[in-house]
C-alpha cells in the first residue's frame, strides 16, 4: 500500500490525510514524520484532516502519537480542519485529544505555528540579552 505524503513548506511539514486509515499506513506515517523533522529541522507539523469522514480511537491515537513524537523532536503539531460531525462523535466517544493543538484551516494552523515559533525565538533573545 502507498504512503501518506509529507510535504515540506519552509520550516513546516504538511500532511494531508485523505484515505481511509489502516494500521500499516499509520505506522508508516509516524516513521516518515519523525524522519522528516530531523532531516529538515522542521519546527512545526500541520495535519489536515478536513477530508476525513470519521476519526475513531485508532486514528485519534495516531494523531496524539504524532504530536507527542514531534514534540520530543522540538516541533509543534497542529491538527486542522476537523469536520463538525467528526468532532461531536469524538467527544461522545470520550476522546478530547489533550495535548494536540487545533486550527480551523491550514492558513490558521500555519499562523499559529509561525507565531509560536516567533515567540520562542523572542524568549531566547530576551534570555541572551539579559545574560
Amino acid at each position: 500500500m502507498d504512503r501518506i505524503p509529507v510535504l515540506r513548506m519552509g520550516s513546516l511539514l504538511l500532511i494531508t490525510i485523505q484515505v481511509d486509515m489502516h494500521d500499516k499506513l499509520a505506522l508508516q506515517l509516524q516513521d516518515d514524520v519523525t524522519h522528516r523533522i530531523t532531516e529538515y529541522g522542521s519546527t512545526g507539523v500541520l495535519i489536515d484532516i478536513s477530508s476525513l469522514e470519521i476519526v475513531d480511537s485508532f486514528i485519534g491515537r495516531m494523531l496524539a502519537n504524532v504530536a507527542a513524537m514531534s514534540r520530543v523532536l522540538g516541533a509543534e503539531t497542529v491538527v486542522v480542519g476537523m469536520q463538525p460531525a467528526v468532532a461531536i462523535t469524538l467527544v461522545e466517544l470520550g476522546m478530547s485529544l489533550p495535548g494536540v493543538r487545533t486550527a480551523l484551516s491550514v492558513e490558521a494552523g500555519m499562523e499559529l505555528l509561525l507565531t509560536a515559533a516567533a515567540e520562542t525565538a523572542y524568549g531566547f533573545d530576551d534570555e541572551r540579552s539579559q545574560a
Partner: peptide, 12 residues
C-alpha cells in the same frame, strides 16, 4: 462542555 470540547477539536 461537550460543545466546547468539540469546538476546540475543530480549532475554535
Amino acid at each position: 462542555l461537550k460543545t466546547i470540547t468539540a469546538a476546540r477539536l475543530m480549532g475554535a
